[in-house]
């Protein structure tokens, strides 16, 4: 497997590795994939009062392309609003990282992780609003 420069860069210097407190109401957490499939991604976002993602973190169990896809995803969601972040497509990731066809599913997982994190954040916030009459 020949890796693109960008995949190597993200693999060697992953951006935003780590964790945010998952019980914090301003944090959305998405965990996608399965250990039996060889890939699990956890992506977290912290959203400020203006609905802007001000921080993001990831942890990934998967190949170099999966690590690079999730690292890139955290870079891209930062500074975007929740709605803007929802428009990130796996094809954008494929293009940016120059992923070969066999690694496309790694980018799909990253898109899924973003969506799952956004959904978690929205669910928490709807619940919060629901509790304040």
């Amino acid at each position: 497997m020949a890796y693109s420069e960008k995949v190597l860069d993200h693999y060697n210097n992953p951006r935003n590795v780590g964790a945010l407190p998952k019980d914090d109401p301003t944090v959305g957490t998405g965990v996608v994939g399965a250990p039996e499939c060889g890939d699990v991604m956890k992506l977290q976002i912290r959203v400020n009062a203006d609905g802007v993602i001000e921080d993001a973190r990831f942890k990934t169990f998967g190949c170099g392309s999966a690590i690079a896809s999730s690292s890139l995803a955290t870079e891209w969601v930062k500074g975007k609003t929740v709605d803007e972040a929802a428009t990130i497509r796996n094809t954008d990731i494929v293009q940016e990282l120059n992923l070969p066809p066999i690694k496309i599913h790694c980018s799909v997982l990253a898109e899924d992780a973003i969506r799952a994190a956004l959904a978690d954040y929205k669910r928490k916030n709807a619940a919060l609003q629901g509790t304040t009459p």
Binding site: P14, V17, A19, V31, V32, G33, A34, P35, E36, C37, V40, M41, K42, F58, K59, T60, F61, I67, D112, A116
Partner: peptide, 24 residues
């Protein structure tokens, strides 16, 4: 391992077999 979500879960004492994965 420092960037593995599985490692993190195991450190937290979560049994990976008990997790509902979204896998294919």
């Amino acid at each position: 391992r420092d960037m593995s979500p599985l490692w993190e879960m195991v450190q937290e004492g979560i049994d990976l077999k008990s997790v509902q994965w979204t896998g294919h």
